[in-house]
């Protein structure tokens, strides 16, 4: 009985996603969604990927990282530059449909490059126990930003000019919310399966007790670097979405330290160790500032107060380690009598 239900779970999850998608289509096609709202929806998608991927490192690996926007920058610039190169070489042209193709070619490039940087940062930082990762990623985020500021091919005037960095312009646009919906969903599903897998349990064991973990024969460094790399890779995907979001420009200011801390705040608010919490926090904290545009100058103030309140009243984050599960919810909705088996 229970086994049978478990086998149905992927189907059920897919049905739920399809229902969400139908809702999105309905919204988009009904014409109530303006260009402005569309931009916010796209923002939700890349922020969701950023926050869930950061949660892999913070919540599941238990390591603080302060340069997640740096990996996003690597993914954004790589995918944008590859796209520009492809267009310049006339391998692809911008036209209906081909923008999606172009994006699907450039996004993996950004993801791969971000993953590569993840390995480079992770290997020295994660061999050690303790908070070295936070310090190293803090440095990494700033180095990437300053590097971009001074790289000629990234749109800047170059090192010798000594001028402030300029934006990279002329990036093609791919803001098809339907495609992005499935990309974001796929990312979240992959991360979900990752934390539910043997790998996920292994990294949680290392987080719980690294000496015990190595005493059962686990190569801690390998698993830590692997997870961190996955996390960086997804940040690269988020970066690609960001680069193609529609403005056509990228600037190093989009990936400042403050952005990194924004994502950290979202992870903490949603609950370290809850991907559901990350998705909720990402959506709420993307939409909320837009609703509160009038009070924008108080945003950081409100954030700090909210964060302090959450830390006092819900120290594990809003959702703690809770994960939403359709399989457990459906019986409750339709048949109140059927008892939900306790996990």
């Amino acid at each position: 009985m229970l086994k049978n239900e478990k086998r149905k779970a992927p189907l059920l999850n897919f049905a739920a996603l399809a229902a969400l998608f139908a809702l999105l289509v309905l919204l988009m096609e009904s014409g109530v969604v303006s260009m402005y709202v569309r931009g916010i929806i796209v923002q939700c998608f890349y922020v969701i990927i950023m926050v869930t991927s950061l949660n892999l490192t913070m919540g599941f690996l238990g390591q603080l990282t302060l340069g997640h926007a740096g990996f996003m920058a690597v993914g954004a610039y790589t995918s944008a530059l590859v796209a520009k190169a492809l267009l310049q070489a006339n391998i692809l042209t911008v036209g209906p449909g081909s923008d999606i193709l172009l994006f699907l070619i450039c996004m993996p490039a950004g993801a791969l490059m971000a993953a590569l940087f993840g390995i480079l940062v992770g290997i020295p930082a994660l061999r050690l126990r303790g908070d070295y990762l936070a310090i190293i990623t803090l440095g990494f985020g700033e180095i990437i930003r300053v590097l971009i500021q001074n790289l000629k091919f990234a749109g800047s005037k170059g090192l010798a000019q000594g001028q402030a960095g300029q934006a990279l312009i002329g990036i093609p646009v791919m803001n098809n919310v339907y495609v992005l919906f499935w990309i974001a969903s796929l990312c979240v599903v992959v991360m979900f399966s990752f934390v539910r897998s043997k790998y996920g349990r292994t990294i949680m064991a290392i987080r719980e007790d690294d000496i015990a973990a190595s005493s059962v024969g686990l190569n801690n460094t390998y698993y830590k670097v692997f997870t961190f790399t996955i996390s960086a890779m997804f940040a690269g995907i988020a970066g690609a979405i960001f680069a193609f979001r529609g403005l056509g420009t990228l600037s190093q200011n989009d990936f400042s330290f403050l952005k990194s801390t924004d994502y950290v705040i979202m992870v903490v608010l949603g609950g370290m160790g809850s991907l559901t919490g990350s998705v909720v926090a990402a959506i709420v904290l993307s939409v909320l500032p837009e609703l509160l545009r009038a009070a924008e100058q108080y945003r950081m103030l409100v954030y700090s107060v909210v964060l302090i309140l959450v830390m006092i009243f819900r120290p594990a984050g809003l959702l703690g380690v809770y994960e939403f599960s359709i399989r457990k919810w459906l019986p409750r909705l339709f048949d109140k009598k059927e008892e939900v088996p306790k996990a």
């Binding site: 349990r201 949680m204 719980e208 007790d209 973990a213 005493s215 059962v216 024969g217 686990l218």
Partner: peptide, 30 residues
């Protein structure tokens, strides 16, 4: 571990937030 040697570390280092069964499973995870 694969050579037939096992280590019970100092200070009862169990995986605190996992269940007993999960802890045992971790022992043979390799």
């Amino acid at each position: 571990i694969s050579l037939g040697m096992a280590h019970v570390p100092e200070g009862r280092r169990v995986f605190q937030r996992m269940t007993v069964a999960e802890n045992l499973d971790m022992g043979a995870i390799t």
